[in-house]
């Protein structure tokens, strides 16, 4: 009896030890992104296929783009995230400050495969998303078509939704005031240009409802809080697909931004992380992601694999692409904090 139980114990210990070593043996990556529908699209298009192909398990984490967390991790020497999805401007800033691993671009295959903006020292472009104007097609029949229309309170009365952040808001204001998309950052970089943007915003200030999170932008539109709002193009699309809404997208002067995949300094699985990023930049996987969310692939060849239904919803679809521009990550990197103070101060006035 006693012998038996001892045997059992020993085999139990051996078994758990084997389990423990097994876990050590198989590499596990930790992938961090913004959660929600976006991370779901990444899970389906990249994480699951990668695990199926390589046997490398992937844990997931979510964040709201707080780079402070990454800095704290790297400084403490305990980098537990291996691949992180990040805004391009943010990635460039962290790269410059030495918190990210530089990308070995030779291992990523032909650079020409990517849209130029997707190639960064520490970040491989993943998708293009856009700030657009959205409105409810069920409530407004003859809807706005230009960014100037957003300011037209006479023809389209009602509240307006804008991001409680100078980024995107000030660009829209300047374009509505007649600045060409091409020159937006040149004008915004001067004090006179900044004042001009605020002056334009003054025209609708008392009608604006400010949103802070992407979810909120779609929410205020579906709740009828606003007649039209700036929003991420994916949010507008998802409200239509998932909630049966009839939201319309105004692509005029849309502002594109890039999400990149990065590897933080000190990742213990650097090699596997880079392998994952390479896998995530293959045309097929990139096209796969558009099945779940209408963000544009960075890899040029991917568009060939995208279904025709989905194409018009992508910022990088030729017709849409011609109407917008890339945001200038460098500009916001340099001036973001100062302009943010001016913006907040303006809000309180």
């Amino acid at each position: 009896m006693l012998k038996n139980s001892r045997k059992k114990l020993i085999s139990l210990i051996a078994f758990s030890a084997a389990l423990g070593f097994g876990a050590l043996e198989a590499k596990t990556l930790t992938f961090t992104s913004f959660g929600g529908a976006y991370q779901t699209s990444q899970r389906e298009a990249y994480l699951k296929p990668f695990t199926a192909k390589t046997g490398i398990k992937i844990n997931e984490a979510s964040y709201d783009g707080e780079s402070g967390k990454i800095i704290a991790m790297v400084n403490a020497g305990r980098t537990v995230w291996d691949v992180i999805d990040m805004e391009q401007s943010e990635a460039n800033r962290l790269c410059e400050e030495g918190y990210l691993e530089p990308i070995d671009w030779d291992s990523m295959g032909d650079k020409d495969r990517f849209i130029a903006a997707g190639i960064n020292e520490c970040g491989v472009g993943s998708i293009v998303y856009s700030y657009v104007i959205g409105y409810d097609g069920d409530k407004i029949k003859d809807g706005p078509t230009t960014i100037q229309d957003f300011w037209n309170l006479k023809k389209w009365p009602g509240k307006r939704g804008l991001r409680k952040n100078p980024k995107s808001t000030l660009e829209f204001a300047l374009v509505a005031d007649g600045v060409s998309l091409k020159d937006v950052y040149k004008v915004l970089g001067t004090d006179a240009g900044l004042r001009r943007a605020f002056k334009k915003l003054d025209q609708i200030k008392d009608q604006v409802i400010w949103w802070s999170s992407g979810a909120q932008s779609a929410q205020i539109l579906s709740d009828g809080e606003v007649a039209m709002t700036s929003a991420y193009n994916g949010r507008i699309f998802n409200a239509n697909r998932d909630e049966g809404k009839n939201f319309k997208t105004v692509w005029d002067a849309h502002l594109m931004e890039i999400e990149v995949l990065v590897v933080p300094k000190g990742s213990k699985n650097k090699k596997e992380a880079m392998d994952f990023i390479r896998f995530a930049s293959t045309p097929k996987q990139q096209a796969e992601q558009t099945k779940y969310i209408p963000y544009g692939p960075i890899v040029k060849d991917a568009i060939a694999f995208v279904s025709d239904d989905m194409k018009p919803n992508l910022p990088t679809y030729a017709v849409n692409l011609a109407k917008g521009r890339m945001m200038d990550p460098e500009f916001w990197n340099e001036n973001g904090e100062y302009i943010n103070e001016r913006f907040q101060s303006w809000l309180l006035r």
Binding site: G65, E66, G68, G336
Partner: peptide, 8 residues
């Protein structure tokens, strides 16, 4: 915002 966005 100063902590999360601007790392200030």
């Amino acid at each position: 915002e100063r902590v999360n966005v601007f790392l200030n």
